[in-house]
Amino acid sequence: MGLTIQFIPYVEIENLSSLGRIKKILNAVKEDKIVLLQGRLKKEEEAELIKTTMEEINSEFTGIELAVIYPEPHNLDFFRKVKNNFINALLGDRQGLTIVGPATIVKEIKKDPNKIQLFTEDSSKKRRKKK
């Protein structure tokens, strides 16, 4: 069985409320899609995403795996820091990438500063019948 990856460009969530953004992500994830969101949610929205996920957990939907990749370069000289801050101010939350997958498919997302590894569940035990 293949994996479905849905890319959501930032413009699609830009004008949505926090709840709207969370619902958009969760609706796709609940359709067994792995969401690649351009940019990132606000910290408070990440916590809301976890809260809303918990409210929706049942025997079929067991939660999400979440990872945010955001370039935060260290050891920059003064001018590059200023340049970086200017770019951040312009682009805001558009920078980076957010990956959200259903827990029934994505077992674990391992992240260290240089790489991301996405481990999937054995597809044979992925689907559950409603009890």
Binding site: K43, E44, A47, I50, L66, I109, K110, K111
Partner: peptide, 16 residues
């Protein structure tokens, strides 16, 4: 592994 997103989200929310 300390780099899990839950850790980062918890600490980020406390900082916010």
């Amino acid at each position: 592994d300390p780099y899990s997103q839950v850790n980062i989200t918890i600490i980020g929310n406390i900082a916010a």
